[in-house]
């Protein structure tokens, strides 16, 4: 069993703050949206928590962004510039998740320090981190003070439009969380990837038994 250092400490700090923060945001968001149906927290407390955690996550987002912008680890997100190659590799990865994994085929993706994401992960994480999450932060910020950011609110078509976008991205992130957590259990053991995100070291099985990363 080989160990590769794939998760530097800034990434791990960002990840776990993000993980707990997003779960808290989902729960407080549900409480805010469904006050009356769910009354675990008062509306006022839920809004306060949602706002504070939101700002924490925005700050945390910049930890992630600045780390990757100013380190060579950004290579893990380098996009595959050949569409044919990207789609071919993505198809192989999806074929593995959808079929090969059930009959014990090896994971087509081989983890290394600068190549820790498979093509599907790389594309998904970039969509999440560079589109969905910023959109969620931006709309959340607008909703936090609709007067201060009235220009942005009006630009999007009004507070109802902003909230609709905020809820749609919340729905996307919520469904993503389930899949993300499940895929994290598909290491060579159910907790292998979880441990890696704590220690930084991913255990790599000898060929041909490669496993997917979350």
């Amino acid at each position: 069993m080989q160990k590769i250092y794939v998760h530097p400490i800034p990434v791990r700090i960002w990840h776990w703050i993000n993980a707990f923060g997003i779960v808290a945001m989902i729960l407080t968001g549900i409480q805010i949206r469904y006050a009356g149906l769910i009354d675990l927290l008062s509306f006022e407390v839920a809004v306060d928590l949602h706002n504070w955690i939101g700002f924490l996550l925005i700050g945390n987002f910049f930890v992630w962004l600045l780390f990757y912008l100013f380190s060579d680890k950004i290579k893990v997100y380098h996009p595959e510039l050949s569409p044919m190659k990207h789609f071919r590799e993505s198809f192989r990865q999806l074929q593995y998740y959808g079929y090969g994994i059930f009959k014990g085929d090896p994971n087509p993706h081989h983890v290394s320090a600068y190549h820790k994401f498979n093509p599907v992960q790389s594309m998904t994480y970039q969509i999440i981190m560079l589109l969905i999450v910023p959109l969620q932060f931006y709309t959340g910020l607008l909703l936090w003070d609709v007067t201060l950011f009235s220009g942005g609110v009006e630009l999007l078509g009004g507070v109802r439009v902003v909230d609709t976008v905020h809820v749609l991205t919340f729905i996307v992130l919520t469904s993503f969380i389930f899949v993300h957590v499940y895929l994290a259990t598909l290491g060579h053991t159910p907790t292998a990837h979880l441990k890696a995100m704590i220690t930084g070291y991913e255990e790599i099985e000898e060929e041909p038994g490669q496993t997917p990363s979350p």
Binding site: R33, F43, G157, G158, R160, V161, T164, V167
Partner: peptide
């Protein structure tokens, strides 16, 4: 349908779509 026509008014929880 009101996302466009009533875009300027929204109360979280009370008027959710």
């Amino acid at each position: 349908i009101s996302v466009d026509s009533v875009g300027g008014f929204y109360a979280v929880g009370g008027t959710r779509i």
